[in-house]
Amino acid sequence: MNDAGRPRRPDIDPAAFFSTDLRVGRILDVVPFPEARKPAYRITVDFGPEVGVLRTSAQVTNYAPEELVGRGVVGAINLGTKRVAGFTSEFLLLGSYAADGVVHLLAPGPAAAPGDVVG
């Protein structure tokens, strides 16, 4: 879904936003996901000792796998799981959509560590 240029969404109760568990993670592994309908990767991320390692599928093939491994990212880790072409996606990797539909991953600051809470 491309949200670039989308009108502002309606206001929500702050409790709804703050119930989302946003965490800093570090990408450990990236592999192609040819079974997905649109070009995607299967991505493994370390979210620190309290959360552990989670996997997701993401349509971020504008990045080469070697650009992603070791990169800090932000993920929503308490949205439940979703099956994507037989693969269980365990969190949502956060990024912004450019006008041309390209995803730019959100990046934590350089001092942020896996497991840090985003809020």
Rank of each mutant, 00 (worst) to 15 (best):
M1N: 04
M1H: 08
M1T: 08
N2R: 06
N2W: 00
D3A: 15
P7N: 08
R9P: 02
P10T: 15
I12V: 15
D13A: 14
A15P: 00
A16E: 06
A16V: 14
A16W: 00
F17D: 10
S19R: 15
S19L: 12
D21R: 11
R23C: 11
G25R: 04
R26E: 15
L28Y: 11
D29F: 03
V31T: 15
P32S: 14
P34H: 07
A36F: 06
R37T: 13
K38V: 14
P39S: 09
Y41W: 06
I43C: 06
T44N: 02
T44E: 11
V45W: 10
V45A: 11
V45C: 09
D46Y: 09
F47N: 03
G48Q: 05
P49N: 07
E50P: 00
G52Q: 05
G52A: 08
L54T: 04
R55C: 11
R55M: 03
S57R: 01
A58Q: 03
V60F: 03
V60K: 09
Y63I: 12
A64H: 06
P65F: 12
P65D: 07
E66A: 14
V69F: 12
G70I: 11
G70D: 11
R71F: 12
R71L: 15
R71N: 07
G72R: 08
A76G: 07
I77Q: 07
N78Q: 08
L79W: 03
V84H: 02
G86A: 09
G86H: 05
F87Q: 02
F87A: 09
S89M: 12
L92Q: 13
L92E: 12
L93C: 09
L94M: 15
G95R: 08
A98L: 14
A99H: 09
D100F: 00
D100H: 06
G101V: 03
H104N: 13
L106K: 07
P108V: 12
A113P: 00
G115W: 04
G115L: 05
D116M: 03
V117A: 14
V117M: 10
